[in-house]
Every structure is written in structure tokens, then in C-alpha cells.
Computed example of a mutant assay.
Amino acid sequence: MRLYINLINFNSNKLAGVGYFFKRIISNIDFGDEKWNKFDEIILLSNTNVDCLTLFDINVNVKIRVVKFSFLHNFAFRILFEQFVLPFYLMKGKNVVFSPTPSIPLWAKLLNKKNVLISSIHDMIPFRVDNKYSFLRSLYIKGLSKKAAQNSDLIITVSEFSKLDIVEITNIESSKIKVIYNFIPEFKFSSESISEPYFVTVCTIEPGKNIENMIIGFNNFLNKNKEFDFYKYKIVGQFGWNYNTIISLIKDLGLEEKVELMGYLSDVDKNKVIENCTGMIYLSKYEGFGIPPLEAMYFDKISIVSNISSLPEVVGDAGIVQDPNDTVLLADNLKKLITNSDDFRANIKYQIGKFNPQIQINKFVEIITFYS
């Protein structure tokens, strides 16, 4: 039996959320363990643009073989390969196909009923957030996500919220979906960081992240609390679509000296910004998980998060939860974050324990080796 891992979606050395999630799991797996003996070969399907072993820090094993394709950096060619060529690779014997994304060969089971398909669907953003993708790309991702959910033998997702959302949209049985929480293996809890007078948000800088309301709420906070008018607001993340509207809002409110768009930062620099902040603001209107508030907890920082999607699940009783559209309430909660956060901070260690890295890694190993 062979295990195929489909990595051809990853065509650059810059990883985003889905890529980081997979890397945190795969880099901590020992393929020499006897649980993996059932596979005669582990085949990594990769794009020639990247060295997937290095990119994902995969522990090399004699069973692992990398197969690279030179033309798959093209979006259209990749789709054609996955759906109309890859199934023919899987016609003989029993094969397990795992994808860290919804991109599985949908016809593989028609050509060989022994094949086992395991996909990953982190969220249903295309169905919930308008203008996130172009029309054609949105149409493709919606169709692929639905078909992947329906055709997969098993689906991995990152929160109980996402599990419910997938069931609602695709009308599949919830028993097909297994939750593996996001986690941060390289972080250790520390309560020794200092708190400088600024709040932070870590996200792609685009309208879909509700940055406008966070900026307006911060402005309300400054206007209502003159004793805290020295506070600043730092937004960390690469610039996405239509970010000029956010820059215009900052100028219109006269916050050029108060709100800093820091752009993309290295992990080291980003972590330093989180470590030294007073607290995090994360009022996204839709998240499959939402890892920045978890990162903040490792530095003993609390977050103000939306009361919708997965975010209440992530922070539990260790964060302030509110309506993402209520900018007046945000102003009050920012003051609470400064003056009265000890009750929330007392719950941080317990909440972090829910996302124990080894438990999540073991879940993944069990899914691939047992359910196959």
C-alpha cells in the first residue's frame, strides 16, 4: 500500500495558514515508527518551484520518495493534472491519498475503489465571505470544497465550528470529519514579557478582516480615554486586496501617528511585536480557527475577539468576546484590557492546554495510519 501526499498546491517558499498547519504536523512525525510500516512507500507529489522536504522540514526516511512536476505552477495545469491525470496513477493496488487542502483527485475512487481519500478543509470562507476571491476562483473553490467533502472518506478540519459549518454547507455526515486543532509546537508559555502601550492585530491587511471596525473602535477608545491617548495600534500582515480603503480610513480619522501598518514580518519580528503588546484585537467576521489569539496567549496576552465563528472556541474564558461590529463596545473593552484583565489572564494556561501539540500530532498519525 502506498501513501500519496499531494503538495503540488504549494509553489513558493512563503507558507500561509494551511501550509504552516501541515508543516507543524509533518515536521514532528517519525516515519520510522512501526505505525507507518503498513505503507510500502510514501510519495510526495511536489512542484519543481519548491524543495518540499526543506519547506516542510520533513524527516527523511527510506520510504519517502519525492515526485516533482515542472508544469504545475500554472493553476489551470494543476487542476487538469489533479483531476484527469493523477487518478490514473492510482489505478493499481490500494492507495491512500492525503491532501493538506481540499485538492483531492475526485475521480480516483471511480477508477479504483480500494483508494482512500483524506482531505483537509480548514474553513468555508468562499461561502461566507464575499469578494475574498475572484469570481472564477471562488466558483472553483466552492465546487472543489463541496465535492472534496462529499468524495473524501475522511476530512480533517481545525475547529468544532468549522466541522459544523462543513456539515451545514455540504450536507455530509459529521462522523466523516475529524478535528485537529491548530497548535504552535515551537512556543513555550511565558509570563515574563513586558507590556508596551500598544495593541496589535495580526492578519492580512484587507477589508474582509474587519480592520475598519477595529480602527474605528481604537479611535473611539482614544477619544473617550484621554489618559490613554499615548496608546498606539500596530497591524501586522501582508497587504491583501483593496487595502487602500484601510489607508484612507486611517487618514480620514487623523490616525497616521497612531495606527501603524507594519506589513509582512518574519516570525521572529512578528512574535516580538506580540510579546511586547498590551493585548490583541481580533474581530474577524469569519475564521476557521484564528491562530493569532493563540499565539498571544503563549505570551500571557489576552485578546478581544469576535463572538462568531471559531474565535470563542479558541480563547475560551481567557479572552474578551464581543460583537465584531460594535465599535463603541470595543472602546470600552480596550480600556478593560488595560485595567482589568487579570481574571481573563488566569485562564490562559488552561486554555492553551486544549491545543497540546503532541495530542494533535497523534490524532493526525491515527487518522492516516488507522483509517487507511
Rank of each mutant, 00 (worst) to 15 (best):
Y264L: 14
V202R: 05
A296Q: 09
M280F: 04
F183M: 08
V158P: 02
D317R: 11
S195G: 08
K176R: 10
R137L: 15
S46F: 01
Y89N: 14
K38W: 07
G279C: 12
Y282M: 13
V85W: 13
M91T: 10
Y350G: 13
N59Q: 10
K146E: 14
S174E: 13
L90F: 09
K335R: 08
E186W: 01
S309L: 07
F218W: 01
K354A: 13
N59C: 05
N340W: 04
K14L: 15
F135V: 14
S27R: 00
V273Q: 03
E313T: 07
I304A: 05
Y20A: 00
S310C: 10
F98N: 03
I352Y: 08
E275H: 02
K163R: 13
N115C: 14
P100Y: 02
K176V: 07
V18N: 02
L253W: 00
D267L: 12
V200I: 11
I26N: 01
P126A: 10
I43N: 04
E160S: 05
I8E: 03
F56Y: 08
V315H: 06
D332K: 12
F56I: 06
L117Q: 10
F71N: 03
N11R: 14
I5D: 05
S309I: 07
F199E: 05
D323Q: 12
K224F: 03
M297N: 06
N37P: 10
L110I: 11
I368H: 07
I172K: 05
I29Y: 02
A76G: 05
S309K: 09
I246E: 04
T170Q: 02
S134E: 15
K285V: 14
I8S: 04
G240D: 03
Q351W: 08
L294G: 04
N356W: 06
G290N: 13
I304R: 06
I26F: 03
K354F: 15
K178E: 09
Q358K: 00
K38I: 15
L249Y: 00
I121T: 05
Y89K: 13
L3V: 06
T170H: 02
Q351V: 10
F364H: 00
M124N: 01
V236Q: 13
L249I: 01
H73Y: 11
R78G: 08
Q322P: 05
I216G: 01
K163C: 05
K209P: 11
K142M: 12
I274Q: 11
